[in-house]
Every structure is written in structure tokens, then in C-alpha cells.
Amino acid sequence: MNQLLMNNQVMIYLLMEVIVSVMLLIALYWAIKMLISWDFGSFSTAQYRLEKRSYLVSTILLFSFVVKFFLLIYFVFTIDSISILIPGAMCAAGVVSANDYGMQLLLTKLLILFFMLLWMSINSYDMRAKNYPLFRFKQVIFLIIFMMVAIEGYLDIEYFTHIDIRQPVSCCSTLYGQLEGSNPLPFGLDIRNLMILFYMIYTLLMVTLWYKYRIVTIVLAVLFIFISYYGVVYLFGTYVYRLPTHKCPFCMMQREYYFIGYLIWGTLFIGSYQAIISSFINLYTKSDILYNERRAMVLLSIFVAVCSSYVALYYLQNGVFL
């Protein structure tokens, strides 16, 4: 019995995951039933009953989304607090990398939130239309969500039971540091080019969102997430920590940095998700009714502003860059 499992927060986290999974299982039963029997044109009582059931599914999904959203934050908090139990770990970065499952778990969580947000946007469009045009599509997305939640559950168990508290882990400086001159940045970029790319994509994204070039927006948004990850870890983060060698995506979520990490990662992900989702839906339904594009623009701008301000502040205070 892994000692970690007895930690208060880990237990609470796992319990919450179980509750959400149980609720989603109930929703799954009905989602499958609806996928099979849904016939909007029908006047039968069975159909009307299904229409009522669809509210149960959407309520459960909304509930799951809200809980999972808070659980992601709670999860990061929790693994940060157990870093004391694992030799060598000084923040969540070390704990996440304690075994292979850690990073996979985190990525799965981010994907699940994306698909849930997608589902909710599709649902709101579906409800506003008068004949549930996206109904079947919605249920398919739900099945994808459920599968991912199942995978997440599996990863949860594997991750927590395979953290060997006797095995020391590397802390963020080794994980993200530049060892022996190897370049961690993708496509062989250097920091300067990464920054140029970062701001360029951001500007392009603002343009494509404003003028509603949907496909380009989706591609750019995905690219932006990718580039921003590297940007935050390898550049902006160092300005948050005021230390050119401190490269870590997690430390900025700690109290000493005023939890700014939550704002930075939050605006990046939610903004990009909104951009992708609203473009996707408008593309798919050939319509123009969602206004999430504006919200996406605002969020992404906040993200870029916050990151840039750390650099600007440092420069203004010290006259040089790190």
C-alpha cells in the first residue's frame, strides 16, 4: 500500500475522480440509448422522454466539467504539496516526472477539459436550433470524453501507485535546464526566434479571429499553445523567477510568485480552447452565432500582456534583459 495514497489530499482527489466517473457512467448509459433511439421527427412518448433525458446528460456533463476544472487545479496543488515526500522534488515538476504516467496524466486532463468545453459549446448551439441538428455528433463527442476519462482513471491509479518515494527525482532545473548545450526548443529555434514566432502568431491569431478565418484560426491556435508552452517555460518564466537558469512551468503556481502561474496557464488554455472551439463550430454548422471569438481574443491578449509585462518590468527596473 503506497504511503502516498494515505495523504489527505491525494485521497480527496481520488475520491472526487471516482464521483465524477460514476456520474459520467450514468450519463454514458443514456447517451448510448439516445444515440441508438433518437428520432427527432417522431411523435412517440419514447422520443419525448429521450428529449427530457438529454437534459440529464447535459447537466451531468456540466457538473463534471466544473468539478474536473477545479480538480485540475487541486491536482497541481496536491502534487506540489507531496513534493516534500519525494527526495529531490522541490515543486510539482519533480513529482510529475516521478514516473512516465505523470506527464501523460496531465496532458489527458487538459485534453478532457478541451473536449468537455467543446461538448458544451456544441450543446448550447444544438439547443438553440429548433431541431437538434448536432445531436448525434454531440453523443459521439461524449463517447470520446468518456473514453478519455477512463484512460485518465487508469493513469491516476498507475501514477500514484508507481511513485517510488525511495527513488529520488530530478527537480525542474535538471528537467528543463539546458544540459551540455543541447537545445530543448523545437525546430532548432533559439530564444530570439521563438519570441518572434510567439508574437507573430499572436498577432496573426488576433487578425484571423477578428475576420473569422476559421480554419487558419484553428491551426494557429494549436500552434500557439505549442509555442507558448516553450515560451513560458524557457523565457517568460525566467522573468517571473528573475533567474535566467530557473526554467519551470510549475513553480510559478506557488504562493511566492503570487500564484501567477494559474493566470498565465489559465488564460492561455481557455483562450486557445475558445478560439479553436468557436471556429470549429462555426465552420461545421456554417453559421455565425457564437461570439466566443471575442472572449478568446480577450483571454489570449491578457495572456500575452501578463507574460510581456514581466519582461518589461524587469527591463525597466534593471535596464538590461536577463
Partner: peptide
């Protein structure tokens, strides 16, 4: 925050989950 959020999660989530189906 971590203590308060733990208490809140442990209380509120099962609460809402149990009430969800009757509400619907």
C-alpha cells in the same frame, strides 16, 4: 486555501452529485 478547498470539495461535490438526479 488547501485545507478550505479540501473541506469544500469533500462536502460540496458529493452533495451536488447526490442531488443532481432528483433535481433533474
Amino acid at each position: 486555501l488547501s485545507v478550505l478547498s479540501s473541506i469544500f470539495l469533500l462536502y460540496a461535490v458529493p452533495f451536488v452529485a447526490s442531488v443532481l438526479i432528483p433535481v433533474w
